[in-house]
Design a protein around this nucleic acid. Structure first.
Lengths: 229, 229
DNA sequence: GACTGATTCAAACGATTGATTAATTCTTGT
DNA sequence: ACAAGAATTAATCAATCGTTTGAATCAGTC
């Protein structure tokens, strides 16, 4: 076991985690082998057991790594206070717009300064896999990380549609998030359908669509002072 | 090899396919073993190679089985002619409503007469897995099956919003389908978030929400002669 | 009843899996 | 310089993987 990790081991740990994220994202938990991961990280496969006490430990560490160092934009937004008092409605509307934009950008590439970053892409693909078929061992970790985002979104929706019940609000949130996550999870098929491997060429166009569609679907007429055509 | 299958072998083939759908849906392609599948089907594991020439062949046969015998409702709708001429708008609106209802019902349980049918549930879970992370070997089969549904939906949307470009219409379709598929793919998390393992108790409530949200998001004011509260 | 081909079976194949061992190298504090 | 412990390595473990083999069983035909 490792009592107090040194600088040297931290490098190896990180290399293993990043290689594991890439490999897990490509092939899934069962499809990825620790030898392949270790080879990618230029490390010995025995170090997986040494550092993470097994393949499952490495997998959990990958999820933690993604949660703590990625998806920062949405996390920041979720920390914002729920809108209250006078002007709460306008504030909630703006927060919802920000949420859609931040979530979409996080989904496409976690690191905005390096849009080619393969790690960010892989991290979101891995998250998507995990959300669809969560392993028993990781569902607790998943819920713990998702909860604040849900609460934040629900807070905004409640201000915008105070007439709706909690269940109806959850349905609204589900529809909004569903568009965004499906957009991310079905990029492969979407590109096939459109016969355009470069889709989406401009993320801003997609964000604007999501925002308009969501606000209309939410039933907020004042968000559209003048219909644009 | 099997030249002309007899009645006896058809039973075994079907048992293997259905057991494979269940197991593949639970554990994924790599996680499921042919011994486990064969045990479930009360058959010998060597029959996988004999009947389907390997594990991959069995997997493809599962997808074909699902496509041909399940999701009938949406397939029927997709065969309906695109609305034209006078009254096309009302027809397209009704077809869109039917599409949302049929798709949601298909997603939840393929066999309406037996809502407890575990095979229908597993089949959709397997499809969801495949759409998110399509195997190279099956993406062609997937596109071939999805294409008519996409075309049908796009035909309706084009009638309802003739002012939009093809890309904008595709975005609309993506948002509508996204809600539905995300609803299906994230049922596990949704139940955790709502602390309600029985969600959704009434599918009709969800269908109505999807319909209302989609029609509003699509920007069809006449679909709501009177806002309900 | 003997023949034929499809189907099923138990057993074993080589390959690969995640995990473990023991020896070695590297790092650090004294 | 030296001991102590962390980090890494090659080699190996038992288990399981998908597949193959060859014989046994079944259903028809003559």
């Amino acid at each position: 076991m490792n009592a107090q990790p040194t600088d040297a081991s931290l490098d190896t740990r990180q290399r293993l985690i990043e290689a594991a994220i890439l490999t897990f994202a490509e092939k899934g938990f069962d499809g990825a082998g620790i030898r392949e991961i270790a080879l990618r990280a230029k490390a010995n496969s025995a170090l997986v057991t040494y550092h993470f006490s097994g393949k499952e430990g490495l997998y959990l560490e990958c999820l933690r790594y993604i949660f703590t160092r990625k998806a920062c934009r949405v996390a920041e937004l979720a920390a914002a206070p729920s809108p209250e008092g006078p002007g709460a409605r306008e504030a909630a509307l703006q927060q919802l717009r920000n949420h859609i934009r931040a979530f979409t950008q996080d989904l496409m590439a976690c690191d905005p300064s390096d849009p080619q970053d393969p790690l960010g892409e892989a991290a979101m693909a891995l998250m998507a896999r995990e959300m669809q078929a969560p392993r028993a061992i990781s569902s607790a970790l998943l819920m713990e990380q998702i909860r604040p985002h849900v609460d934040h979104l629900m807070g905004c929706l409640q201000v915008l549609r105070p007439d709706l019940s909690r269940d109806e609000l959850l349905n609204m949130g589900m529809s909004i998030q569903g568009q965004l996550l499906y957009f991310r999870n079905s990029l492969g098929i979407a590109r096939l359908i459109r016969s355009n491997p470069a889709y989406p060429e401009d993320l801003e166009v997609v964000i604007r669509h999501f925002t308009d569609f969501s606000l209309r679907g939410l039933g907020i007429p004042e968000a559209f002072p003048q219909p644009r055509n």
